[in-house]
Nucleic acid binder design. Structure first.
Lengths: 237, 237
DNA sequence: GAATGTGAACCCATTCACAGCG
DNA sequence: CGCTGTGAATGGGTTCACATTC
């Protein structure tokens, strides 16, 4: 609850303007990354055209997306990189620190724990959990893998407020339930199953099988079209 | 080209009905997985309601999605699991075998190579490539890691027709270009950068940073709403 | 002059209700 | 009678043009 509802905000709320459409939200994270590299390169100003070029979207879309946050540009000039970057980060809620627990320290969990852009933007991995006795106790980066048995204790001690599930499909729902019971309300799952969570919990899924199958569909279509093209070409002779 | 065009198909094409809307396409892969586990459980028939329940969508949506493939259900009864499963697989182009090259054999690449549901549905990992001399030569599953230097040779020998990019951001575009030059037209990238590819290449991106930031946005909004709720509650007293 | 910000038009996706069929 | 399949209505996202501002 309280998500997806918009009960006529009493106005005057500091950050968090009107709610951002999901499609725009996803793109804002991309703009943010592009702005980050520009900032690192010492670029000071950017136009919607340039930002569009860098992120692979078109410029009206960029402007519309940015307009959901408010007017942070200068007409005739463009956007100041650091200023815009800061405002997007604030709108996304990246000014506070998010403490992430990674459940499942297999290859995927290890890869995620070592993910560079992770620590940077307000995210910190505070716990790594696994059920395998051979993995428990291993040091990954600055962290030691804890046993999942004591997940509840670890989550409380580390005050984690987000979780990543990188475990096999058959144990995902059980662990997900335990995370929810611990009060975690933001979960990113890599497990190839549909997970059930209460309404107040935000669950996002990354699914490689889905992605590959979508690619397969398009590749197949391209092949079929090619064959059709060839057939037409032959007929045209 | 030839993708996203629909030049009045001359009718009579075997598989590949009219093109499936992207949103439906993504869900079809989920139905397919659910049907797979049902099949394994010996379930023979399923209704749109049950399939909806299992996949977390609503039943009219399920029916509409399935209707894009044609009429494979029986009114008053439901769908035969194996029959429907087969038709979805065919529509997605999973009847042929896709040979996937994984570029980048770090933790992520290794995790992907070992991904279980991978080999199952028409996908086979045929090559694993890395630039690190310490990683090259390692055996992961049934595969030996090859040096990226000879990527072109390996791709040709293995007749790979799909690629997964699991490499750091700064080398992703270069490797992507080389994949395209090799004739690869389907690429799944895990690198946190915007990649430029020609129109005829299908590129999909999985981006953990984006996912976490979207979660952060919602979590922050929930928090803000909660505070607002509390304020309202206090005022109401 | 140049580029932002936005209302209006357009297009795709979801929802709904119900006709059609076993 | 039950459940599928689908047109029609609704809602959200994208595109476009242009008024607006520096």
């Amino acid at each position: 609850m309280s998500i997806s509802e918009e009960p006529a905000r009493p106005a005057g709320a500091a950050a968090a303007h009107r709610n951002i459409p999901p499609a725009s939200l996803a793109r804002l994270t991309i703009y943010l990354r592009a702005l980050g590299t520009m900032l690192a390169d010492g670029v000071e100003r950017v136009s919607s055209d340039e930002l569009a070029e860098a992120t692979g979207v078109n410029s009206p879309k960029v402007r519309k997306d940015l307009s959901y946050l408010g007017s942070y540009g200068t007409r005739g000039v463009g956007y100041e990189v650091s200023y815009l970057s800061g405002h997007i980060a604030a709108a996304l809620g990246l000014t506070q620190n998010w403490r992430v627990a990674i459940v499942g320290a297999g290859n995927l969990g290890k890869a995620l724990a070592g993910y560079p852009g992770f620590g940077s933007r307000g995210f910190e991995v505070v716990a790594l959990l696994d059920s395998d006795p051979l993995v428990v106790g291993q040091e990954i980066g600055w962290l030691r893998v804890s046993p999942v048995d004591v997940m509840e204790t670890v989550l409380e001690r580390t005050r984690a407020n987000m979780a990543v599930l990188s475990v096999p499909a058959d144990v995902a729902q059980g662990l997900c339930d335990r995370l929810v019971a611990c009060g975690i309300t933001s979960i990113l799952s890599f497990a190839p199953v549909v997970l059930q969570v209460p309404d107040h919990v935000q669950l996002r899924k990354v699914d490689m099988a889905t992605e590959l199958q979508i690619l397969a569909y398009h590749a197949q279509r391209a092949r079929v079209s090619d064959i059709a093209d060839q057939a037409r070409a032959r007929l045209a002779e």
